[in-house]
């Protein structure tokens, strides 16, 4: 009995070594906890708890896939949030790989003599508060010419705050748990 068992035990890894596409690594969550038939490392289909040390790759992957796995090279939540926040202005260009969004000039209905333009940069794949920069440009009409004018220092950071708030909202809507 035991030699047969040993042979069987050795056969599977040997087959696995040359099994090609018919062989796969069994994940830890495929071994049961008979009591509740729940996978040990992934209770109830959620991810396995709170990361206290190291990088939370599951969360990164989840966030990267949050917008249908579009292959964005920047954080999907920040990207979507930036587009949403600047949607009231006409869009001139958006590059999801470089992470830049540039709007065209926009004149608010209440202020005929001035116009605005914004550039936003989304940096990196992580949802971090320093991963988005918004720069607003302003021009005023003087003697028939548009001339550059300073922008209130808080405008940029207020827009960034709005982007971050929207990103947080999007993330909480799409989080797996």
């Amino acid at each position: 009995m035991k030699p047969h068992l040993l042979a069987l035990g050795l056969l599977i890894p040997v087959l696995a070594a040359c099994g090609g596409e018919n062989s796969r690594q069994v994940r830890n969550d495929e071994y049961g906890d008979y009591r509740n038939s729940q996978a040990r490392n992934k209770p109830q289909g959620a991810s396995s708890g709170i990361v206290v040390f190291g990088v939370d790759r599951e969360r990164q992957a989840r966030e990267a896939n949050a917008v249908g796995g579009t292959g964005l090279s920047v954080n999907a939540f920040l990207w979507r949030a930036t587009l949403d926040t600047l949607a009231f202005m006409p869009l001139a260009s958006a590059d999801p790989f470089g992470g830049t969004i540039i709007t065209d000039w926009y004149t608010p209905a209440a202020a005929d003599g001035e116009r605005f333009r914004a550039q936003a940069y989304v940096m990196g794949r992580q949802l971090r508060s320093d991963a988005v920069r918004v720069q607003v440009f302003r021009q005023v009409l003087a003697r028939g010419q548009w001339v550059d004018a300073p922008v209130s220092a808080s405008t940029n950071s207020e827009l960034e705050d709005k982007v971050l708030a929207r990103a947080r909202e999007l993330r909480s809507q799409s989080a797996a748990r």
Binding site: N41, P43, S48, G49, V51, G54, V55, D56
Partner: peptide
């Protein structure tokens, strides 16, 4: 991948 430490349970 550097090791991660997770806390879980029920």
């Amino acid at each position: 991948e550097a090791p991660t430490v997770r806390i879980g349970g029920y």
